[in-house]
Simulated assay, not measured.
Amino acid sequence: MSNNLLKGKRGIVFGALNDMSIAWKVAERAVEEGASITLTNTELAIRMGTIDELSKKLNAEVIPADATSVEDLEKVFAKSQEILGGKIDFVLHSIGMSPNVRKKRTYDDLDYDLLSKTLDISAVSFHKMIQVAKKMDAISEGGSILALSYVAAQRTLFGYNDMADAKAMLESIARSFGYIYGREKGVRINTISQSPTMTTAGSGIKGFDGLVDFSNRMSPLGNASASECADYCIVMFSDLTKKVTMQNLFHDGGFSSMGMSLRAMTQYNKSFENDFKDENGNIIYG
């Protein structure tokens, strides 16, 4: 159901790949709420994914670009303003990839050249994107910029690897640039720390299925879906959140505030039932 929260607004969505992508869901909801948007991803991602399908559905032009390239980003903002007929009101950065994770390098055996690529793709690209937009004066007064993060920026989660470092950097960029852009242009910059979500990128992380299940058991509201994340993004793009900036906003069903839940503890105890019982069948705790 549309509430016209983004009626008349112009936006750019970075990172939609296929219908599993959070960025894909955000693009759909943005248009449903009255926005006009452009889509952008790398040429390889466009060939591998189904973004053309989304483009046709939403009547949104796709602009091929490498988000780590300042020149490409300049083209994205220039062409988007030309296509949409004015300055941009909101931007979503939904970009993340770790070559170390893909090559199954553990955190204590990272390839540092690959680490540089992880940071450049997943975090520094956010800084480049904002810096380009600011220098071009491409964002409207009071505009909203969002990036997608994860709780591994604050807590160690097995298998998340150097992406945790990238997310920590991403959140720091939002704070540092949020102060400058907010002070000078009233533009707000935030990150949304989403539940583990079964996307093409997320599925490459070691033990991801277990992480999704654990988070769901720990969270009083359960994991937030990609569609629910899209709803939250729309609110953050809208005029309802004009004074929210420099924040890392947890959208994880309460996971980030939990220590142990009944569901998680119950499952944990079950794992000992066959191995640690006394002669009377009682569970023995070490």
Results as ranks from 00 to 15, higher is better:
residue 76 V to A: 10
residue 85 G to P: 09
residue 87 K to W: 01
residue 162 D to G: 00
residue 181 Y to F: 14
residue 148 L to S: 07
residue 59 N to H: 13
residue 23 A to E: 03
residue 49 G to V: 00
residue 123 A to L: 10
residue 168 A to V: 03
residue 223 N to C: 10
residue 180 I to K: 14
residue 83 I to G: 01
residue 5 L to Q: 15
residue 269 N to W: 09
residue 207 G to A: 07
residue 51 I to N: 02
residue 243 K to I: 00
residue 29 R to V: 01
residue 283 I to K: 11
residue 18 N to A: 05
residue 28 E to A: 06
residue 236 M to C: 02
residue 230 A to N: 02
residue 155 R to F: 06
residue 42 T to M: 04
residue 204 G to T: 14
residue 239 D to H: 09
residue 110 L to D: 08
residue 209 D to T: 14
residue 103 K to T: 08
residue 75 K to H: 08
residue 258 M to E: 14
residue 56 K to R: 11
residue 266 T to I: 02
residue 82 E to F: 03
residue 80 S to K: 02
residue 139 I to Y: 07
residue 123 A to V: 05
residue 113 D to P: 01
residue 115 L to T: 00
residue 194 Q to S: 11
residue 244 V to P: 00
residue 236 M to K: 00
residue 75 K to P: 00
residue 46 I to C: 03
residue 257 S to C: 01
residue 1 M to S: 15
residue 70 V to T: 13
residue 240 L to S: 12
residue 32 E to F: 09
residue 214 F to K: 15
residue 221 L to K: 10
residue 209 D to E: 15
residue 214 F to G: 08
residue 188 R to G: 09
residue 58 L to M: 11
residue 90 F to K: 07
residue 7 K to E: 01
residue 46 I to G: 02
residue 197 T to V: 14
residue 127 H to P: 00
residue 2 S to C: 06
residue 189 I to K: 03
residue 208 F to G: 05
residue 284 I to V: 04
residue 92 L to A: 04
residue 204 G to L: 12
residue 110 L to M: 14
residue 284 I to M: 11
residue 208 F to Y: 15
residue 81 Q to P: 04
residue 273 E to N: 08
residue 80 S to R: 02
residue 281 G to H: 06
residue 222 G to L: 06
residue 201 A to K: 06
residue 115 L to M: 08
residue 63 I to W: 09
residue 63 I to S: 05
residue 231 D to T: 00
residue 259 G to E: 07
residue 104 K to A: 13
residue 254 G to Y: 08
residue 190 N to C: 02
residue 154 Q to A: 10
residue 83 I to V: 01
residue 199 T to H: 06
residue 8 G to N: 12
residue 145 I to E: 09
residue 114 L to T: 00
residue 211 L to M: 15
residue 32 E to Y: 06
residue 57 K to T: 02
residue 191 T to G: 01
residue 17 L to Q: 11
residue 131 Q to I: 02
residue 277 K to P: 03
residue 143 G to N: 13
residue 40 T to R: 09
residue 75 K to I: 00
residue 186 G to L: 10
residue 132 V to Q: 05
residue 72 D to K: 07
residue 20 M to I: 01
residue 119 L to N: 09
residue 209 D to L: 14
residue 233 C to N: 07
residue 52 D to T: 12
residue 223 N to Y: 11
residue 203 S to V: 02
residue 111 D to W: 13
residue 72 D to H: 15
residue 233 C to M: 10
residue 100 N to E: 05
residue 210 G to V: 07
residue 4 N to Y: 05
residue 222 G to P: 08
residue 196 P to N: 13
residue 88 I to A: 10
residue 134 K to G: 01
residue 194 Q to H: 10
residue 259 G to N: 10
